[in-house]
Design a protein around this nucleic acid. Structure first.
Length: 654
DNA sequence: GAGTTTGAAACT
DNA sequence: CAGTTTCAAACTC
């Protein structure tokens, strides 16, 4: 009676088939159209993507949610009655938080056992159950274990369909199983490591995927004490990656490099899993228009408190995931949105840490809001705008920006982002290392940051905190429409302000060089292979490109930027990063104005700055014109990002 | 602390 | 896209 309807099954099967295939994955990533499609689907799937900001809404629900939906459907269609019965209770748990996992472990295990026995599982399945720890089993059954059902479906389908679709299914079956296993492993890992950690990692580092292997592997061995590999012998990471690809079309191909690398290096499960988790989160984040912090609000933070403690506390109070593992990570929690593209390298680098710390110190503390009529559900609310829940210190009234109203908050955010995808993106692109100095130079402002959209001051002369630029401690830029700008951090028109004549000259010089750089960059893009990843490259805190992509991409084009002494003079690290990734990307986007700063002449300024700094590189590429049409903007951004993939053929597996 | 000013956000 | 309104922070007293 539950015999799966072919029509119903087909889509799923096909989906698996396509996504499983490495070739298709690769093509998928290369094809903007396909990607856009899938994204739209995802978007429509749920607001999960939007919810993704782990820092804010650390709840594992996000991940589970997506997965669960997948699994539930299949269960209904394909699962044997007994299986469903056994699992029925389980499904209800799908949306439950990971924190409750333990509570259901026993139950789940039972379910899993029953299911495994009941269903004609392949030996692999059995083996998997045996090999995997309890938690893993749980995972299999858990709502998260959508893949198991899928696997079953596939198997059944294979039997039923036998000749018809046998080829495709057979071809992908193994992969599916592998992915399933890897998926389970990941879940297990997450359990072991603690969801929070993965979330933190997600919020903090994207790049870590690669680097994490080196550092984390050593530091955090696999709790289980063994490096796991899929039965097929294929590194779990690879499988996981495949799963990701399947489930999360958004994943950048770039990640593959890291994965592959991991595989080659024989990293342990934990790190891999962590990374995997991170990626997943990243993926989700990417989908989200962006959970950015309004950095301009950050400067308001009183400095009496310890950045770390403060940030941590803030995170906890606000319902964010506290960063327990890394002191520096606190920043992430705070910046979570912007940090989606965090770079592990940054964390590892002492200098980067210092910079981050400084940044945190500067901005972590969050001023409490005092909203009275907005219910803290509008961008008027600093907390809301920063992607944070209001907490006790807030003096707001009728506040809805609280975890208990998470749904409301998320929905509101979604709406706001639908209007303006960048609404929650960091307003200020801060370059601690001077990455955006390229831009800064152009603008002649000493501040190594810029307000993404620019201010619109009329009477404050940009000398008071009414001015977002001033408030953020950054100079005005060409993006600003302020009148009578006297921003002490840098006037929009002048390379003066604090800077002296030398700066002015430098500014001009930089501008000219910038042009040349652009040229170089363009060439580099044309010949991406020529670019060589730079190990030293670390993205500035503000320049967090989602996924490993950021780091990698940046790594590919540091040279072009560095070629300009001035641009890099201040701080090579960041500059290389930002510039590298930006120009590169921009080249791809030729003719496409960057979001929110369309007025800025690309070739004059590193308008790109806004982009690179953008919490999500995707945004970086989105066109300003599309701001109003959020969806279209998103798609385009993603397309662009994907297009950059070809630049890294060597890293991305075919 | 109340009132004013300011500019971003939201709305039309 | 421009103009207006709403809002909350910044500021002044």
């Amino acid at each position: 009676m539950d015999t799966p309807d072919k029509t119903q099954i087909t889509p799923t099967s096909n989906l698996c088939k396509f996504e499983d295939s490495p070739v298709f994955k690769y093509i998928d990533s290369l094809s903007p159209i396909e990607l856009a499609k899938s994204r739209q689907t995802d978007n429509g799937f749920s607001s999960l993507a939007f919810l993704s900001p782990s820092s804010l809404f650390p709840s594992p629900q996000i991940t589970c949610h997506r997965e669960s939906r997948f699994s539930v459907k299949r269960h209904h269609f394909l699962e044997p009655l007994n299986s469903r019965v056994a699992r029925s209770g389980h499904e209800s748990n799908t949306s439950e938080e990971a924190s409750k996992v333990d509570e259901h472990l026993g139950c789940l295990n039972n379910d899993s056992s029953s299911k495994e026995t009941s269903s004609d599982q392949v030996d692999e399945q059995t083996n998997l159950a045996t090999d995997l720890p309890r938690t893993l089993k749980y995972d299999c059954r858990s709502p998260d274990g959508d893949f198991e059902p899928c696997d079953e479906i596939l198997k059944k389908t294979n039997v039923e369909v036998a000749g018809q679709e046998r080829s495709p299914f057979q071809c992908n079956r193994d992969k599916w199983e592998e992915r399933q296993q890897s998926f389970q492993n990941e879940r297990n890992l997450r359990k072991i490591c603690g969801i929070k950690r993965s979330e933190e990692s997600a919020g903090s580092d994207w790049f870590p995927l690669d680097k994490a292997n080196n550092s984390e592997n050593a530091e955090s061995g696999d709790p289980s004490g063994s490096c796991k590999q899929s039965e097929s012998g294929e590194p779990v990471m690879d499988q996981m990656h495949g799963i990701l690809s399947t489930c999360l079309p958004d994943e950048l191909v770039v990640n593959d490099s890291g994965l592959k690398k991991d595989d080659k290096e024989g990293n342990c499960n934990q790190s891999n899993h962590q990374q995997f988790s991170i990626r997943r989160r990243c993926l989700v984040f990417e989908k989200s228009p962006g959970f950015g912090l309004h950095l301009n609000s950050l400067p308001n933070i009183p400095k009496g408190q310890s950045p770390l403690s403060k940030s941590t506390l803030s995170s906890m109070n606000r319902g964010e995931v506290p960063d327990d593992n890394k002191g520096v990570v606190t920043e992430n929690s705070y910046e979570m949105p912007a940090t989606f593209g965090g770079n592990e390298a940054d964390h590892n680098s002492p200098e980067k840490k210092r910079q981050k710390f400084e940044l945190v110190e500067e901005s972590v503390a969050c001023k409490r809001c005092n909203c009275k009529r907005s219910k803290c559900l509008k961008l008027y609310c600093d907390c809301f705008a920063a992607g944070l829940y209001c907490i006790e210190p807030c003096s707001c009234q009728d506040c809805f920006n609280k975890p208990i109203h998470e749904n409301v908050v998320l929905e509101t955010r979604r709406q706001i982002e639908s209007r303006n995808p960048l609404a929650f993106a960091p307003k200020v692109i801060r370059t601690t290392n001077g990455v955006s100095d390229s831009m800064g130079d152009i603008n002649k402002t000493p501040a190594s940051a810029r307000h993404k959209r620019g201010c619109n001051c009329k009477r404050s002369s940009c000398l008071k905190k009414y001015c977002e630029c001033f408030q953020a401690g950054v100079g005005c830029s060409l993006s600003c429409r302020c009148e009578g700008c006297k921003n002490s951090f840098g006037r929009k028109d002048g390379c003066e302000s604090e800077s002296d004549g030398d700066n002015l000259k430098a500014c001009e010089k930089n501008a000219s060089e910038k042009s040349s750089h652009d040229t170089v960059i363009s060439k580099g893009q044309e010949h991406p292979n020529l670019s060589v990843p730079s190990p030293d490259i670390s993205s500035p805190p503000f320049c967090r490109l989602p996924f490993a992509y950021t780091g990698k991409l940046a790594a590919f084009f540091p040279h072009s930027i560095k070629s300009s002494p001035q641009l890099c003079s201040t701080q090579e690290q960041g500059s290389s990063d930002t510039s590298s990734c930006k120009p590169k990307l921009e080249s791809n986007l030729d003719g496409i104005p960057e979001n929110g700063t369309p007025e800025i002449p690309k070739h004059k300024c590193f308008t790109l700055v806004s982009n690179p700094t953008s919490p999500n590189c995707k945004r970086v590429f989105s066109t300003p014109n599309h701001d109003s049409t959020s969806s279209s903007t998103k798609w385009r951004s993603r397309k662009l990002i994907l297009r950059s993939v070809p630049s890294f053929p060597s890293f991305s597996p075919p």
